[in-house]
Design a protein around this nucleic acid. Sequence first.
DNA 1: GCCGTTTTCGGCCCGACTGTTTTCAGTCG
Length: 573
Amino acid sequence: MQNADVARFFDDLADLLEIQGANPFRIRAYRNAARTIENLTESVAGIAADPEQSLRDLPGIGKDLADKIVTILDTGRLPQLDALREEIPPGVVEMLRLPGIGPKKVAVLFRELGVASLDDLEQAAEQGRIAELKGFGKKTEQSILAGIAQVAAAGKRVWLAEAKTLADEIVAELSQRKSVGRASVAGSCRRLKETVGDLDVLVTSTDPAATMDGLAESERVSETLSRGETKQRVRLRSGLEMDLRVVPDDSYGAAMQYFTGSKEHNIVLRRRAQERGLKLNEYGLFRDGTSIAGRTEDEVYRSLDLPWIPPELRENRGEIERAEQGRLPTLIELSDIRGDLHMHTTATDGTATILDMVNGAKARNLKYIAITDHSKRVAMAGGLDAARLREHWANIDAIRKQTSGIEVLCGIECDILEDATLDLPDDVLSESDWVLAVLHYGLKQPREQINKRLLAAIRNPHVSAIGHPTGRLIGKRPGAEIDFDEVFRAAADFGVMLEINAHPARLDLDDIHAAAARDLGIPIVINTDAHSVSGLDMMQYGIYQARRAGLEKQNVANTRSWSQFRKLLRNRS
DNA sequence: GCCGTTTTCGGCCCGACTGTTTTCAGTCG
């Protein structure tokens, strides 16, 4: 059982308890436990099985929750959850997804009207039965109908690449207005999370009303959803929603801190303020009603006896403790990257020639690259068999001889087949400078078989790295189920690198698993998987993911000079 | 349900906006 699966039990339990009107602090305890488990770099099953470790050492896990975790791991069920599900149908929980509808309203709808699904709810709204309930009205009824349509339509999270591009454009647009002073993206987009649910933008303004009018009239905005003195929520034409907050200049740093989040990080900070007799909110840090910090984020953190913490790390995954101890990582930057070990050409499904890719890489100041076209199993992309691959390598060789200033490796993205063999024979792989082994097919196989495949690839002496280890496509398909503990141990033992694939749809390994791999000393490679020259620019998104994992330059193999990187390869055999 | 160099009981982060109210609960981030 994966950490995320265990966490889900507690989130589901919390949802049901909320509808039931249970003690809010008990509910919070379940949610805190879910976050703690989700953010672990070790597997919770591993901790439970290890006599040297105790679940109760995890923050927010006491006797009761430790027992519940063991029950979940042993039986795959949680009796309390099963009992609650008997009382509250799944459709009732689903209603929580509607904007403006929370547990209290859901409970009333279920209790008073017997509404037990989105379909029931839509019917009741159309019949005007909702507006008659106490605490409800015509507007709530209308917003329920609008919400149902919205949930059906989309309301989904978008890739960071899309959200960030849009957010940067909007900030630039707002910055041009005369009334606007400072402007910045905040929220999960600033934390560079792999997906973004909505945008948060912060501005200082001499004329808030005019600034909000300006946003409402922007080409990128389709409608204003709500608007007050300091906050405006709009829907963008792309479907994404955005909050604009207008804050006083003296509060800008505190507001940036507050609206960047994460919620979990902020809760710990506010508690820290309380312990020091202070109060922290979006307007500043206050002692007895007098502001003692707020103009800059740095000021806020310093006044809480902490160094400034990079937004990418603000998830309450131990960054506050590390900051306190002066052990914050020096996060990797794009300019640290020297090589790119995953890219395609017209030999398979790329759109650029070998020479184009080589020149594109040189233009981006890379010192070494690997050309890694597909192996034959990926027939749709025109994958290469042994003969075509050798021919391709000869072409790469020819170009390498007439090129200077960059090392070009004859590589291959070799499929790990469903039966745990590799798509090309060992004698071919042995001629390669760089073998990236990957899963493309059979991702739904049971975990045991997936692990068998990955372990077989890792043990093959010709394999250099595992590319996009889970095979997930964010928002489109989940990755393969992997026993990460076992795979990571094998990668560490055999000196096989693991990839963070920089494509915005992959970002695979994710932040948590990349951190776990780093903890085991496994060298990480960040690669673009470029299918065109401009695809080489995706490196930035891989760097973002690595920063969220807390990776430093020395954790990432392709920050090394070519001569250093080559040594890593030689150590392999 | 968790947690504790002020506590094993009594706390548990904070404010804006909306809709339904006539002073505030619910929701959201």
